[in-house]
Design a protein around this nucleic acid. Structure first.
Lengths: 205, 205
DNA sequence: ATAATCAAAATTATCTATAATTATGAAGGA
DNA sequence: TCCTTCATAATTATAGATAATTTTGATTAT
C-alpha cells in the first residue's frame, strides 16, 4: 500500500495522529519500550519514529529523560499561526499562475464537503485538503511540507478547543478566497488567506 | 560542553557540517555501517542521526536503498530563498519592538567582522550571526529553528559557488537594514531584508 | 560483441540481548 | 517537615544475528 514502508514511518504516522487528535495529551510521556510492545516492534524503529516527531514539533526529547508530547502555549499557537500565514501566502502567490478553473472547482467542492462535516475531525480534514489543493500547484515541495507540519500543529489546538459539542460553520473565508482567485485578484486572495489563517488560531468566531 | 549530549546528535551535527560545507557532495551515499565505524559507534545512533538530517532537508532517504546527501537544483535554491525571505521578515517584524540600541550595535560589529572575513566560511558564519542577532529577540523558537535550517541550506549553495577565489564584499544591505531599524522604519527594514535574502541566492553581485 | 540471466556480495532494516548511565521514587534519618 | 541515601526503572548505547532487498559481477546465449 504505502511505498515508504518502514516500521519507523508507520509508527511515527500513527503517533502523530494520536497527538494531533488529542488522544495523547500534551506532556504525556512516550516510553519507547511501551510503544515498541504495542506495535510488536523493537525499540530501534520506535526511537527513529520519536526523532521524526521531534522534528515535526509534535514531541520534545530531553536526553536521558525521555520524550514527551509537546505542549502548546498560547504563544506557540500564535507563532504557528503566523508562520502558516506567511508561508501559505507565499505558496499561494507561487501557485496562482498554475491554478486552473478545474482546480478551483475542486476546491469549491471540498469546501462544500467541509460545510457538511459531521464532526471536527471531518471538518479539519476537509479544511486541510482545501488549503492543500490550492497551494500544491506552487510546486515547492519543501514549502508544502513545512506548511503540512504547521497545519498539524494548528489542528492540535483546534481539536483541544472543540472536542465535544460542535457544528460545521460555513466557511466564508474560503469562499472569498476562491472568488478573488477566480477574479484574478491574487494579492487580495493572499490578504484574505493571511487573515483567515491568523484568526483561525483564535477564539471561536 | 553541550548538554544535549547524545551520540546521535553529535553525529548529526558533524555530518550536517560536512554537507553544508560541501565536504560531502550532493548525491553522495551515506552508508550507516561506514559512518558507524568512523565514529566508533553502532548503527543505531547513526540511523537516528540520518533521520535528523532527513528532517533538516540535508539528506534524502529511500527505504531499503539507503540515504544520500540531498541534491539542490536551481529551483530548490530559489524555494529556500523565498521561504527564508518570508520567515525572516516575519521574525524581524516580531523582533523589532525588542531591539535595543545595544543589539543594533552588536549587529553592526558582527557585520564589520564579516567585511574583514578571510574566506567564505568566516564570512558566512558572520552573516548567519548577523541575521540571528537581529531576529532572535522575536522570541519565537520554532520560527528561529526553521530559519536556521533554511540558512544551512542556503549556505550549501553559497559554498558550492565560491569555493576557490573569493574576497569579502562590504555588505551594503546589512548596513541599510541597520540604518532603517535605527530610524524606526521597521517596514522598510523588512523590505530590504526580503530583497537581500532573495537576491543572496542568485549570481554574484 | 552485446544483451540477458543468474549467482554472489553488499546494504538495509529489524530483533534480541545486554551493559552502562541517569532519573525517579521510596525509605529512613536529622 | 525536609533532606539524604538507596533501590528500581528507563533511556541510551553496543553487539551480534537474521531476513529481505538491492547492487554487482560473471556467465551464458544470441
Amino acid at each position: 500500500m504505502a511505498k515508504d514502508d518502514t516500521l519507523a514511518n508507520q509508527i511515527a504516522r500513527i503517533l502523530a495522529d494520536r497527538i494531533i487528535t488529542g488522544a495523547l495529551e500534551p506532556g504525556a510521556p512516550l516510553r519507547q519500550d511501551h510503544v515498541a510492545e504495542e506495535f510488536g516492534a523493537s525499540h530501534v524503529p520506535v526511537r527513529e519514529a520519536f526523532r521524526r516527531l521531534e522534528a515535526q514539533g509534535l514531541a520534545v526529547s530531553v536526553p536521558r529523560r525521555g520524550v514527551r508530547v509537546a505542549g502548546f502555549s498560547r504563544a506557540e499557537v500564535r507563532e504557528v499561526a503566523e508562520m502558516r500565514a506567511a508561508l501559505e501566502v507565499l505558496a499561494l502567490q507561487n501557485a496562482a499562475p498554475h491554478l486552473t478553473r478545474a482546480i478551483l472547482d475542486e476546491a469549491q467542492e471540498i469546501n462544500d464537503e467541509g460545510d457538511n462535516a459531521p464532526d471536527v475531525q471531518a471538518w479539519e480534514q476537509a479544511n486541510r485538503k482545501f488549503h492543500r489543493t490550492l497551494l500544491a500547484p506552487c510546486g515547492m515541495p519543501r514549502l508544502l511540507k513545512a506548511i503540512d507540519d504547521l497545519q498539524a500543529a494548528s489542528a492540535r489546538f483546534l481539536f483541544s478547543g472543540w472536542s465535544a459539542e460542535w457544528e460545521a460553520p460555513t466557511d466564508r473565508d474560503h469562499s472569498a478566497i476562491l472568488a478573488a482567485l477566480r477574479a484574478g485578484q491574487v494579492d487580495n486572495a493572499g490578504l484574505i488567506l493571511k487573515r483567515h489563517v491568523l484568526l483561525g488560531g483564535r477564539s471561536p468566531r
